[in-house]
Each structure stands twice: as structure tokens, then as C-alpha cells.
Computed example of a mutant assay.
Amino acid sequence: MNAPVSTSNLHDCRDAFATTLERLAAEDAKVVAVCNDSVGSSKLGDFKAKFPERLVNVGIAEQNLVGIGAGLANGGRLPFVCGASCFLTGRALEQIKADISYSNANVKLVGISSGMAYGELGPTHHSIEDFAWTRVLPNLPVIAPCDRIETAAAVEWAAHYAGPCFLRLSRVGVPDLLPEDHEFVLGRANVLRQGSDVTLIANGTLTHRTVKAAEILASRGIEARVLNMATVRPIDEEAIVAAARETGAIVTAEEHSIFGGLGSAVAEVVVDNAPVPMKRLGVPGIYAPTGSAEFLLDEFGMAPSAIADAAASLIMRK
């Protein structure tokens, strides 16, 4: 599927999350939301107005946030535990490990404003380690939707999935990439563009940038395959191996450190099954400075033109 990218109609994935959660709550009285003084940033204002008895605000206490979510799940509720991803995964990692993952509790963790979405708030608020921290935990699917459509589909999936998961959502507007009737399938990548010369793999806010990069490469006579790899764990090994064997080179791009994230997950599959030249684009193992998410992504070599240049250089190593 070749998906044109609109730059004039950007959507905040948090809106799709909130709208879907409200619909699910109207359909199922077990659905509850738990947040850490983040009603506004989690877009739970309307949920609170419609279901005041089903919103639990624990204040700035992330360990309690996760523990209460686990308790609600054990009591038969269906909790969506929402908070800034940097604090949810950083401050409460032990609780996520012991209370959620180890216990296989039916809790839906929702990391809001992930990556570098907080921009000017700087390194303390950037969440560029959360893939690494969460994807090593058993029983915990890790998902980063690429647009509002996939976000809504992933929330719908999560509500019917019997077990925990981690949804990583940004607050940075992105264009629609997937069809309105898209169905999220755990562990399945979406081919957004076919190509035989190189494969670009991304998720979240980087997916639309890789589509643009592929368009730039096409203008140079290079046909790039684009994979939207929303599920980081379990990752789509079949799609990765096919990409390696059929295109001979892979570039990954992510709003995360290059260590432990999507690029690392892809590289693990490649080295075990079909070694080919790879380039991992992301934050290069440093504390990202202050600045808007768009500025920082460009600074770290993830403007569409820079992604295209990285792919073109990589092809020379084939």
C-alpha cells in the first residue's frame, strides 16, 4: 500500500486514545482510568465528566499509580493506567515488573507524551529509554502506534486482550497513514510502501517521516520498502527477515535512544536470521537537550531528507 502523507492535517494521538476509551467505558462498566495528576495531559477531562466514579487520580505518585492499577485488575476492573511515559516507566519500573509483568495483571499501561514530545522541558522529561525498559519484561506487549487510526485500533485491541500491555503515545501531531478500517494485530508490521532496494522501519512519530524519505529516494531512482513496526514486542520477525533477504539493507528510525529500542530489536532478528547492512537512527546514547520534538528529531538526523541520505549511503555497503 502506497500511503500519501498530508502535512496539512495533523492529529494528536491522545485524542484518539481518549475518544476510544470513553466509548469503551460506555460499553463496559469495568473500564476505569487511573492517572498521576495528568487528567489534562492524558486527555481524560471528558472521561472524568462522563464517568467521575471511574477515574482515579493518585497524584504525583507513580509507584502507587501502577500498584492501584494492579489492584483494580485483581478486583475485576479493566484499568487503563495513564501517565507521562518518562515518569510512568522510570519511577514505577519496579512496580511494572513485579505488579504487572510478573503477575500478568490485566492492566493497560499508557505512556503519554513519549519520546521527546515534552521538548523544551528537557532531559528530565524526555522518554527515550522506555522501549528499552519495557520490552525486556515478559508478558508485556510494547506498542507505539503511528497515527490516530492505529491508536484507536490499538486501544480497542488492548481492551479485549487478556493481559498487560504498554501503549506508547506521543502528543506531537502526525498525519493519517492507515485506512479508517485498520485493524490492529499484535506483532504484525504494516507495509506502507513496497520496494526492493532498501527497507525503512519505524513506528510512532517517525513512521510518516520514513514515508516521506521513501518518496525522496524514489525521486533518486531508489525504491524503498517502508514498514510500520508498531509492535516492538513481540516484533514481526517474518517481516524483518523478508525485508533483509529481499532488499538487502535496513534503516530504522525511532524517537528513542539507539540503544535498546526498535533498532536494537530489529538488529537482534537480523543478526540471528539474515545479516545485512543496517543503520539505526535515533538519539545517539546521550541526554537529548531542550528543544521541540521536531527540532530534535531533525538534529539527530531524522529529517526525511536525512533518513533518505542514510539509506542511500547504506545501499553502497550491500
Rank of each mutant, 00 (worst) to 15 (best):
L206V: 08
V198L: 02
A267E: 07
V241T: 12
L262V: 09
F184P: 00
F259V: 13
R209V: 10
S264Q: 04
V283H: 03
G195W: 08
A244P: 07
A230Q: 09
A249M: 06
G204V: 15
G221E: 12
T252K: 02
E180H: 09
A202L: 08
A267R: 10
L262D: 05
I216C: 00
V241M: 07
V276F: 00
K279M: 09
G248Y: 05
A249G: 03
T205P: 06
V271F: 08
G195C: 08
L281E: 11
G260K: 12
E238R: 10
E238K: 14
L206G: 03
R220F: 08
G221T: 06
G195H: 01
F259H: 14
I240W: 07
Q194S: 14
A274F: 00
V241Q: 04
K212C: 10
A239L: 13
G260A: 07
D197K: 05
L200R: 13
A243Y: 01
H208F: 14
T231N: 04
I250E: 00
G187Q: 11
A230N: 05
A267L: 14
T231M: 13
G195Y: 10
S264M: 08
V185P: 02
G260L: 05
T247H: 01
G260R: 06
R188P: 00
E215C: 06
V226K: 08
V276M: 03
A224P: 00
I235R: 03
D181C: 05
P277S: 07
G261H: 14
A189L: 09
E180G: 09
T205L: 15
A239H: 11
S257A: 13
V251R: 05
L200Q: 11
H182P: 04
A249N: 06
A213K: 14
N228L: 03
T252A: 12
T231D: 13
V269Q: 05
G221L: 04
M229F: 02
V283A: 00
P275M: 02
T199A: 13
I250D: 01
A267N: 07
L186C: 10
E183R: 14
S219L: 12
A239N: 11
A214H: 04
H182C: 04
T205G: 06
A265L: 02
A202S: 13
L281S: 11
E223T: 10
V270W: 03
A202T: 11
N203K: 11
S219H: 13
A253L: 00
A213C: 03
G195T: 03
I201W: 04
S264K: 10
